[in-house]
Amino acid sequence: MEKITIKINGKDIEAVKDQSVLEAARENGIAIPALCSHPEIETQAGSCRVCLVEVSQNGRTRLVTSCNYPVRKGLEVRTDTDLVRRIRKGVVELLLSRTPDAPVIQKLARENGIEESRFFVDEGEHYRNRCIACSLCTQVCEEVVGVSAISMLDRGRDKSPGTPYLKPSQACIGCGACAYACPTEAISMTDEGETRKIWGKEFKMVTCSVCGKPYIPEAQVDWIVKTTGKDRAFFDKCPDHR
């Protein structure tokens, strides 16, 4: 790990070469708003564009997404210029017109001084949800869980995550990692009794032999046993009672 010094908002900070500017900033207590970045993902998609910052390097100044801009020698970062604020505000206003019902986006809008979007709001079932199509759910499913049950479908305005053929996915293990990772709480997952419902599929849950609480889908246990060789008996108890 090569340590280098970069400047953020005029202050020298120490960072690791090739780590993201967002990470370096946060490690040094500098806040940058961001929606779709996730520490467990190898390549940050940079799709929500909320984490824009201004960087100067080799005499060139431009706006970049801090979640995937690599820390390199001689880098100067500004997180709060007029341009950053203006463009971020525009991005958030567009997100608000897409997902006016998402509390996270409403809050971000207020923080950026937006009362309501001046643009038309997407209507219809396909559009009127909380999804900002950032693809984090699909990345988590592929890279962290390793099942690739969902992917981004279609393109442009219609782009959204979904299962193959829009049918319950064979590959899905019901782990819910996608729902936990989603920055706008757009993925519906319900646990009722011993049944979990997600992506149009029902999963039977394993109950903890101590507290009796259903805590993990059977399909997920099968997957972990299969891929890690862990003993099935391990899942007899929930994490609280192991």
Binding site: A45, G90, V91, R155, G156
Partner: peptide
């Protein structure tokens, strides 16, 4: 362009339909 946007980033995906409108 609105039709050809890949839909990955919000300015293009959500901005172009609004410019078109």
């Amino acid at each position: 362009l609105a039709e050809e946007s890949c839909g990955k980033c919000s300015p293009c995906r959500d901005g172009l339909p609004r410019m078109k409108q």
